[in-house]
Design a protein around this nucleic acid. Sequence first.
DNA 1: CGAATTGTTGAATATTCTCAACAGAGGTGG
DNA 2: CCACCTCTGTTGAGAATATTCAACAATTCG
Lengths: 245, 245
Amino acid sequence: MNERSQKSRCANCAIRHRAICGALSNEEIQSLSRIAHSRTLSPGETLMSDAEPTEYFANVISGVVKLLKTSADGRQQILGLLFPTDFLGRAYSAENPYFAEAATDVEICCFPHQAFEKLLADHPGLERRLFERTLSELDAAREWLFVLGRASAEEKVASFLNMMARRAPNLDYTEDNAEAPAHFLLPLTRPDIADFLGLTNETVSRQFSKLNKRGIIRLVTSREVVVPHLPRLAETAGQTELEFA
Amino acid sequence: MNERSQKSRCANCAIRHRAICGALSNEEIQSLSRIAHSRTLSPGETLMSDAEPTEYFANVISGVVKLLKTSADGRQQILGLLFPTDFLGRAYSAENPYFAEAATDVEICCFPHQAFEKLLADHPGLERRLFERTLSELDAAREWLFVLGRASAEEKVASFLNMMARRAPNLDYTEDNAEAPAHFLLPLTRPDIADFLGLTNETVSRQFSKLNKRGIIRLVTSREVVVPHLPRLAETAGQTELEFA
DNA sequence: CGAATTGTTGAATATTCTCAACAGAGGTGG
DNA sequence: CCACCTCTGTTGAGAATATTCAACAATTCG
């Protein structure tokens, strides 16, 4: 738990204009500051559990959060990844249908449940923005349904890398340099990637090696990736024009 | 295209209180009647395409609708199924991220885009209800992520049958008779089921035969199923306490 | 520096897919 | 009304793909 200075916290927030808070005016941001507090977590720490209700909503400020579901016999599936500006928790219900866990070092900005719902009620623009984000999450989940159901192991790993090349936080991806080399750090371990793609870590590792040998990616270290030519990676992923909202 | 009598159409609607319209008062329903029209479709007909914007939102009144995504090389994945009371189309955007196709004979109730968005703006309860349905869709999509990523062919088919036992329209499933035999018609063909589960139709067919031999289901015809003991089917599906919103 | 975690690779196995043949149901026209 | 055709579903045999088990390398952390 790592509290920031109280006064202009939100106004100076790194994701001030990209998160849902972007729908709020500067005065409204002031009142938001009063109810918000930030928190830092280490990899593996639980942010949210389906066993107990959550007392807050949160925006991801930095790092990556895994949403996951585990079965009784230990199988695990990552249902989605949250990147900076993404939202964690659900309006109008404190129940959580799944787990959320920090994949990397994570910083989140928390709003108490009740106060946030009041804010929602007072600012229709905010609610609308939240709704649109939920639709994006739905689109993203459905994109992955196709990947999990119909892609080969190679296509799955390529799809994942393709998504990471766009979203990995330390890379400034823009449409302009779609053909330029991409260079980024993977926020997930091999077993995590496997849990995301519905594969085993061995299969993921083998596909990384194969893509590396074929020159579609270059593994600087096991976590550091260079993609010389993004369209070629996208092609390997099945060129299905994915959006990854 | 099959227009109904204009006057009290909505008030007499079979799903009046279960669809999102249930949020509206009787007077409001009157004004809704004025902008709504119903349509019937045959199996295989397209309701919505990602190629062209849709001119309406719609509620499913009867039948089952497939949401699907097809890749360039012909692979197909069903992303979700819409049952009566479910909603088709997206607020605030006429673009569709995927296809919608009638799986059975289907009757839908259509609202022109603009008129419906006005209705949404005027009735916050309606918008809220729409938002909550979207959250349910998101939950359902994420449940299937687990099934597609981590379930065996047998578990996939059992999960599907388990879902059908609850939702197949001609079965009145209630929590009370969770242990009673279920009896229903499958709204999907074997290839459709395969596209839903990320399998081939041959594998689906083999798993049906196996479950039939083991007595977990009884195939009256290829489309008519009896489940003598639902908990046993749920157990075969992986007992993962699925909700299938 | 040593232990523990993370990642890679190989060989054998299991599962699912592909290709192919055939059976049953449903619809159409002679 | 039946013969025929098509579409849907079933089953088998062989092939492909991913998993399991296992050993080992590399990296990180204390």
